[in-house]
Amino acid sequence: MIKKDAPSLDLAAQIVGEYLNSTAFKIERVLSGVSTYVYRIRLGEETLYLRVLPEQERSLGVEVHVHSLVRRMGVQVPEVIHFEHHNEVLGMSVMLVKEIPGSSVEDCISNGEYEDILYQAGQQIAVIHQVKVDGFGWIIRDQEQYGNSLRGEKKTLQDYICPYLEEDLFLLSQKVFSKVETSQITDIINSGMELMSGHEAHLVHGDFDDSHIFQQAGKYTGIIDFGEIQGSSPLYDLGHFKLHDGQRYYGFDSLAKRYDAVTSLSYYDLLEIDLWALWIGVRRLGMICGRTWGCYHEHLIKTVTMEMELLKNKLKL
C-alpha cells in the first residue's frame, strides 16, 4: 500500500481555491488527524475542513456515503460539500466538510454539562449502529468500493479478533503484564467469544471517545471523525468509550442510559461491552507499547486491569 506524504499548504490551498473559486480564505494544517491529512479553512465567519486520504489507491467515497446516510437518519455529523474520488493534482482522494460548531466535550466547564451532552450522544451513536455492514473489520476503501456499499475486510468476527490477540499478548507479556495475567486475558476473551460474536456486523465509529463528541456552550452539537469506521458488533463503540472513560470526566453511564432508550441493553450486552473494553485496551497497548511511555499507557493499563478483574468475577473464571 503506497502512502503519500501530506500535501503542502500551497497544494491544499490550490484544491480549496478551485472549488471555492476564490483565494479569500486562510488555511492551516491540523495535526490531530491520524487516518487522514486534515486542513482547516477559515472563510470569513465560516470554517471548513479539507481531508485527504494518504493511500493513493483508496477512496474517501465510503466515508462520504456514511456521512450522507447517517445525516438522513438524523445524526449530527459534518456535512460533505465536496468530494473527489481521485484528485489529479494530489493523486489522492479528498473531501471538504463543514464544521461541527464548538469544540470537544472534553472542554466542558462542569461535570453536569458533560453528562448531559453524553446523554444526547448516546442516542446518536445508537442510531449510527443501526446501519448494517457486510463483513467485519475495517471498512474497505479500495477505489472500486467508493459507491454505496459498506464492506468489512473479514468474513467473521473471529477472523478480526483472534490474530491480533495472540500477537499483542505475547508482546505485552514481555513488558506490561505478567504471564499469569496474559493467560487470564486469553481465557476471558475465549470465554466471551461466543457473546462477542452474537451480533451481525453493523457500522461503528471505531474511535468513539469524548474527543469526537462536540458541544457549544454546554449543548451537544455532533460527532466528528469517521476515519476509523468498521464493521463490528454494535457494542464495540460502547466498549471503546468505556475503556477511555474517566481520563477527565466520567460519562459512560449517561451515554449508556440514553443508548438503552433507543436500543435496549441487557445484562449480557453490558457484559459484552466489558469484553470489548478489555480487547480494545489490549489491542491499543499492543500498538503503542514501543512508544514513549505516558499517561495514556497508564490509563489503558489501569482500565484493562480493572476490566480483567471485573470479567473474571462475572464469568466465574
Rank of each mutant, 00 (worst) to 15 (best):
G239V: 00
C295Y: 10
W293P: 03
Q184K: 03
V66I: 12
V64M: 02
L315A: 03
A121M: 13
G218T: 13
M1C: 05
S266N: 13
G122W: 03
F25I: 09
H244Y: 04
L195A: 11
N111F: 04
E115R: 08
H65T: 09
I288L: 14
L275H: 07
S35P: 10
R58S: 07
E228I: 12
M1V: 12
L43Q: 02
M308Y: 03
D260A: 11
L243H: 04
Y236W: 01
S183D: 01
S254F: 06
M95K: 15
S197W: 05
V80H: 14
Q184D: 03
L195S: 01
L69I: 11
H199F: 08
G294I: 10
D134S: 13
L203A: 02
K3T: 12
A126R: 02
G198W: 10
I273C: 03
K179S: 06
L278I: 00
V127D: 13
S68M: 02
G218K: 11
E153W: 11
E84S: 13
H82P: 14
T303Q: 15
N21D: 07
M193L: 15
G33T: 09
K26R: 14
S8P: 01
L50M: 07
M196Q: 02
L195E: 03
N313I: 13
H212K: 13
Q143G: 12
Y268A: 09
G294W: 13
R283I: 00
E18V: 08
T186P: 04
Y114S: 12
Y259C: 13
D237S: 02
K257P: 00
V262M: 10
I288D: 08
T305A: 10
Q124C: 09
L118Y: 15
D237G: 03
G91M: 14
I117Q: 06
V80C: 15
V131L: 00
E99A: 12
R58N: 08
K257I: 01
A201L: 07
Q130D: 04
G239L: 00
E79W: 10
G286E: 09
L43N: 00
Q130N: 07
E144G: 05
I188A: 06
Q76G: 12
H82G: 14
K3Q: 11
L310K: 09
Q123L: 10
H65L: 05
Y267N: 11
K312D: 12
K314H: 13
M287H: 05
A277C: 05
V77A: 11
R72M: 08
S35Y: 14
G147H: 02
S93R: 01
E200P: 01
E307S: 08
D10K: 15
L150I: 10
N190T: 02
F214K: 12
L278C: 04
R258Q: 08
E99K: 10
I128L: 09
K242H: 03
R151Y: 02
S32W: 05
L300P: 15
D134E: 13
E181F: 08
M95T: 11
F214W: 15
G74Q: 05
T36F: 02
I161E: 10
